[in-house]
Design a binder for these strands. Structure first.
Lengths: 252, 252
DNA sequence: CGGGACTTTGAGGTAGATCAAAAAGTGTGG
DNA sequence: CCACACTTTTTGATCTACCTCAAAGTCCCG
């Protein structure tokens, strides 16, 4: 499915803009740096639902910016069990780290249909050469992802099943709203219960039961492919959730 | 317990040298960059067993290089359960990422007695200013840690208890030997079974049983605070272990 | 209207947790 | 060198959170 060139360019610019805004939350960008990043060339690509767009072990020379939809980072055991180690939403440069480690250590897959914008490393490197501060800014962006992953390890290692699911829902609500969740918020939600089970290390059946528990607690609900926050406080309590690790610049 | 200044300096230099050698495995360093890093000033500090030397939420202005002993990165749930999200051995700059994210998202604690060398960010930043390539090299080092964490998430999410413990033992054997494990290798091993349980998300009692399983399989054994690799192939099979993610430059 | 993907429910099994206590190791002071 | 306290490992017995297997129900799309 092709979009008109202009439309496509607008999509990419909007996603780049989201990304740059998020960078600016945590780093100081000069006007020139800002402009350079917004002008990064790349290729728009529509990815069918649940398709790898970066394969495990592949040598990559482009970084993927999520334009629309959702992307997951997938690991896999020898016996074929999958584990999601990161979820990326529009405005996330999903594998910025590939600039410094170009051999992909895990696969990237679309969740639902997704559009990505592939930015060649050459251009990112050119930007870094022109503005050395960008290296640090990119590095910082990657470290926020690492902090999130560290929280996932804690959650999946030490929370009960309800806690794990609730924590994930709460995290996504925060990231999707770029702030604290609030009662009544709702978001597009392409994740199936199978995806949630791969992210939390549970079985799909058990995730289903935990979603019921969360619904019956009046915390959150997924209906019609949308996530509804019913009671933010309840959800946060269930998942022992504290948004500080997301580094969104919220009140401490 | 104070050591003579000269001795102390030698320790720090040896640890810095290990760190720089490891950087050189994955990045290309010029002679000047090499020399600058080896000359990084810092403070040697001996840490009592099981003491936090970086606290959660603290604002840090120094990065910690492990000189001797072992350090763990600890997360904690509200209910007090602990999860280890990284283990750092001598020659690891345990929180290099603090240069770009100075508010610590998790605590660092010694495992057994440890010696660390605290390198002020100012000097790391000065090095980065003098040699812009260093920013990228530091970033790459952090990304290797992130790749390891991602593997931990996969392991703890999707392997059985024996697999998790075996995988951790195999990883540590590789990192301690800077290569593949080999039958008969042995290493100092300050980790208690309680530590292993915090790293794998299991209970100490169950870790004990899994250690027995691993011993009875003839794969590995801990005796007298030393880890003995009995059969590398068996251990690797038990943990579904593939060393590539460690980026040690081994044969693929 | 039929087929595929996803959710939901049920029944029964098991890996790992929990609780409790003994055994072994380690360090300290007398 | 022994006695004591403390930490760590080991073992046993029981319990339960989550898994497995199976099938029905729902939604969506061609």
């Amino acid at each position: 499915m092709n979009t008109l060139p202009t439309l496509a360019t607008n999509d990419a610019t909007a996603a780049l803009s989201r990304w740059v805004d998020r960078l600016a939350l945590r780093s100081t960008l000069s006007a020139e740096e800002h402009a350079t990043l917004l002008a990064l060339p790349g290729l728009l690509e529509t990815i069918q639902p649940n398709r790898d767009f970066v394969r495990l072990g592949e040598h990559v020379d482009k970084a993927c910016l999520v334009v629309s939809g959702l992307a997951g980072r997938f690991g896999q055991t020898r016996s074929g069990a999958r584990q999601i180690t990161a979820l990326h939403l529009p405005g996330d440069m999903a594998d910025l780290h590939s600039v410094v480690l170009p051999t992909s250590g895990s696969a990237l897959q679309s969740i639902g249909e997704a559009v990505i914008y592939r930015v060649p490393h050459v251009h990112l490197r050119a930007a870094m050469s022109a503005f050395p501060a960008l290296a640090e800014i990119f590095w910082r962006d990657c470290e926020v992802d690492a902090a999130v992953l560290s929280q996932w390890a804690l959650r999946n290692g030490r929370l009960t099943a309800v806690g794990r699911v609730a924590h994930l829902l709460a995290e996504m609500a925060c990231r999707l709203s770029l702030g604290q969740g609030r009662d009544g918020l709702a978001f597009d939600w392409p994740l199936t219960q199978a995806h949630l089970s791969d992210a939390t290390g549970l079985t799909p059946v058990h995730v289903n039961r935990m979603m019921r528990t969360i619904r019956e607690a009046g915390a959150a609900d997924v209906r019609d492919r949308r996530l509804q926050i019913l009671s933010w406080d309840t959800l946060r309590a269930l998942g022992e959730f504290d948004a500080r690790y997301l580094q969104l610049g919220l009140a401490v």
